[in-house]
């Protein structure tokens, strides 16, 4: 059994807590949060040991690994401390707020040879993996453009009071929503080298952006656009879509379906000329325990499998999330260069 600890019992933390606690190969020995309220519910009705000081939890629990779902501004300190104590680390996205800290965490994980993963769960959705495969195998030909979009109804009023509404704490659509899309674009076609015409727009929020629009530029001539808005009430929940255009066709992919348009029939793949659709139901493997999407269980399964197999290569490594942070930083710089 892998002994795990968990820091942070917000929305993602509680979700990780349930998945870890139900995991056949994991013994969730300790959980930690600064809020006594949630902790006391777990203490009273659950069976985990609860802490308010994560260092104390690490000291007293003989952990193999740690899951960090605390607010982003605490990531660097918690990740470094955990790595130095010899733990494998899973940390929520976004990875961190300062590039220097990100680099330090990547280096430290390599130095200590520990499994390192960031919670970009879209990388574990079968449709996005299918799109990546189709593009990598050259089925739509040479890629020339990518469009990444995400819309959802998070901030719909002028007033907000949680950490999401504070820039200094990693709030805002850029860190919270757009980072997912940037990370996915990177996963499917790679990271851009430059960005231009970035607009970080506040719609309802005072301190942070609610929408992110930008142009992505690649060295090899690929171009891209990013359009992300978390203040769009027309969506019931976050909807993410990536469109990739190639010389022989295009792929439009979201969490439920992967649509492929081909200019010519592809017999070996079973694709016809014109539109083809691959549905999530045909592509997804079932998980041992399901909470709110196969991907949330699958990413934890992957982390645990890496640990058991002693391999530090990872589908969503610190290094890949650091690359996303670097693009985020380019966007911030590009936006402020015009202000």
């Amino acid at each position: 059994m892998i002994k795990a600890g968990l820091i942070g019992l917000g929305k993602m933390g509680i979700s990780h807590c349930a998945i870890l606690n139900a995991h056949p190969n994991v013994d969730l020995v300790g959980v930690c949060d600064s809020s006594k309220f949630i902790l006391s519910a777990l203490e009273k009705h659950g069976s985990m040991k609860c802490f308010t000081d994560y260092k104390q939890m690490i000291r007293q629990s003989d952990l193999d690994c740690i899951f960090i779902a605390a607010p982003t501004r605490f990531h660097a300190e918690m990740v470094c401390h955990s790595l130095e104590k010899g733990l494998h680390v899973f940390v929520e996205k976004p990875f961190c707020l300062k590039i220097d800290e990100g680099r330090k965490m990547v280096d430290l994980a390599i130095k200590h040879n520990k499994v390192n993963q960031v919670g970009y769960h879209n990388r574990f959705i079968a449709t996005f993996n299918e799109a990546k495969r189709i593009i990598n195998e050259g089925i739509i030909g040479e890629i020339y453009h990518v469009l990444g979009e995400a819309y959802g109804p998070v901030v719909l009023k002028e007033k907000g009071s949680t950490w999401r509404s504070h820039k200094s704490e990693g709030g805002g659509c850029l860190y919270d929503y757009a980072s997912h899309v940037i990370n996915l674009i990177q996963f499917i076609v790679g990271a851009p080298q430059h960005v231009a015409g970035t607009v970080l727009k506040s719609i309802y929020s005072q301190d942070v952006d609610d929408a992110v629009y930008t142009t992505l530029l690649y060295k090899n001539g690929i171009s891209g656009q990013l359009s992300v808005n978390w203040s769009d009430e027309a969506y019931r929940k976050m909807s993410t879509q990536i469109t990739v255009l190639g010389k022989d066709g295009k792929v439009i992919v979201d969490a439920t379906e992967c649509k492929i348009y081909l200019r010519r029939e592809n017999k070996s793949e079973g694709f016809e000329k014109g539109w083809n659709i691959r549905y999530i139901t045909d592509l997804t493997d079932s998980v041992d325990f399901y909470l709110r999407g196969e991907e949330y269980s699958a990413q934890i399964d992957h982390f645990i499998a890496c640990l058991l197999e002693r391999k530090t290569e990872n589908v969503s490594s610190f290094a890949s999330a650091f690359e996303t942070d670097s693009v985020v930083e380019m966007l911030v710089a590009d936006n402020s260069s015009r202000i």
Binding site: I14, A18, N21, A22, L42, H45, G46, R292
Partner: peptide, 12 residues
């Protein structure tokens, strides 16, 4: 299901 399975996972 989201609540049933959450309670189930948390062991509460």
């Amino acid at each position: 299901n989201i609540i049933t399975d959450l309670i189930l996972g948390l062991g509460m």
